[in-house]
Amino acid sequence: MLHKNTLLFAGLSAAFLSVTATNASAAVVASLKPLGFVAAAIADGVTETQVLLPDGASEHDYSLRPSDVKRLQNADLVVWIGPEMEAFMQKSAQKVPDAHKVTISELSGVKPLLMKGSDDDEDEHEHAHAEGEKSDEHHHHGEYNMHLWLSPEIARLSAVAIHDKLVELMPQSRAKLDANLKDFEAKLASTDEQVGRELAPVKGKGYFVFHDAYGYYEKHYGLTPLGHFTVNPEIQPGAQRLHEIRTELVEQKATCVFAEPQFRPAVVEAVARGTSVRMGTLDPLGMNIQLGKASYSQFLSQLANQYASCLKGD
């Protein structure tokens, strides 16, 4: 009899441990690091924030691992842009109840701020089909530019939405969440002013970016991009596109061309070679920034430094 009771106790203990382990892994789970920056500032001191997309990976071609699916299932709150950006987590995100999810592209305050996306590489999409690569559906971002985390205004609206959901889920932490949101908004406002001052001297200088990700940031700070190599970084730009960019560089319309840490395309170097154009790097995901209370502000400042140093020629 004792043996049976011991087994029963062991079984109950194991079940209890597995439940607590599952609960312990619950957290705010953000799809991309810059969304993690915003979420971490709001959840600071209340719950942990985790990011799905690993550093060095691209949101354009990532595939969820079984452990990622588990994290999404166990999350207190899932924060993502929406199916047009993170196609890699669309199925898993659909299974998360609305009470435990913030879909930034669908926030009522965000919808009027959406910018139209570029679709000038459709011929390259078709070429990818011909080569039997991943389907266009996998790549296409739809009608709008979905790199919403690059808008300070949308980041603030996202922070408010994350705060409101966490207050519903964890009402006992309301005072801390309120204070965190207030801190985030104050820090964002001062960083926004500082970045505006830093970028003011380079407003009229033309440049090319590697992929069409930066529209919200550029519009907000009044920068003057001449264009981009590709809409989707998984697809190399066609010969005609490269010839057009090369012509503009030779005619000295651009001061700078920017690559990205996730994509070090030889194509950018080849096009800039033999011209007086400088090469810079823009990091649209803040790869080297740690999650913390001030990380979104650090992210905005880091991008400003990356733009300014190349455009000024420091």
Rank of each mutant, 00 (worst) to 15 (best):
K70V: 12
A272N: 10
R241T: 14
E251V: 06
F9V: 13
D120C: 06
T230M: 03
G215Y: 02
P225Q: 08
L148M: 04
K111R: 13
L52K: 09
Q90P: 04
S309G: 09
G11A: 15
V160A: 12
G56R: 11
V202I: 11
D121G: 02
Q240V: 13
V202H: 06
P34Q: 04
T275N: 14
V231E: 02
L300Y: 00
S58H: 15
E198C: 05
P54Q: 15
D183Q: 08
P97M: 09
L223T: 10
Q302D: 03
Y144C: 04
L291E: 11
H211N: 03
A254H: 03
R65S: 08
L72D: 10
A186E: 10
G227W: 11
M1D: 01
D136G: 06
V69G: 04
R246M: 08
G117Y: 06
G82Q: 04
P265D: 10
V167R: 03
T230G: 00
E84C: 04
K176C: 01
A239S: 11
V167I: 11
L169Y: 06
V277A: 15
P66D: 05
R71W: 13
V51M: 15
R264S: 04
Q302A: 01
M146W: 05
A93L: 08
E59D: 12
G56L: 12
L226Q: 02
A41C: 02
A30R: 02
T103I: 12
G132Q: 07
A39G: 03
D121V: 05
A21L: 15
Q252I: 12
T20F: 09
L7F: 09
S67K: 07
S92M: 09
M146Y: 04
L303G: 00
V271I: 14
F229G: 01
M146R: 07
T49P: 12
I81W: 01
A21K: 06
Q240N: 14
H60W: 15
K91Q: 12
I81D: 00
G204K: 09
A308L: 11
Q306R: 05
G196N: 13
D44Y: 06
A10E: 08
G11P: 05
E86A: 03
T191S: 12
A159Y: 09
G45Q: 02
D44P: 01
H163D: 10
K134P: 00
L7H: 05
T20V: 08
K205F: 07
T281Q: 07
K253Q: 15
F263P: 00
H100S: 11
H129M: 10
T191I: 09
L64V: 05
V231K: 01
A128F: 09
L311R: 07
A200T: 06
P265A: 11
D68F: 11
I289D: 08
V38C: 06
H220N: 02
K116F: 12
I245N: 01
S151C: 02
S173I: 05
L291K: 10
K219M: 08
A294Y: 14
K165H: 10
G45T: 01
E59F: 12
K116W: 10
D44K: 09
T49I: 13
V202S: 08
L285R: 00
Q290N: 14
S25N: 15
I235L: 15
R174G: 00
R71I: 09
M279W: 03
F258M: 04
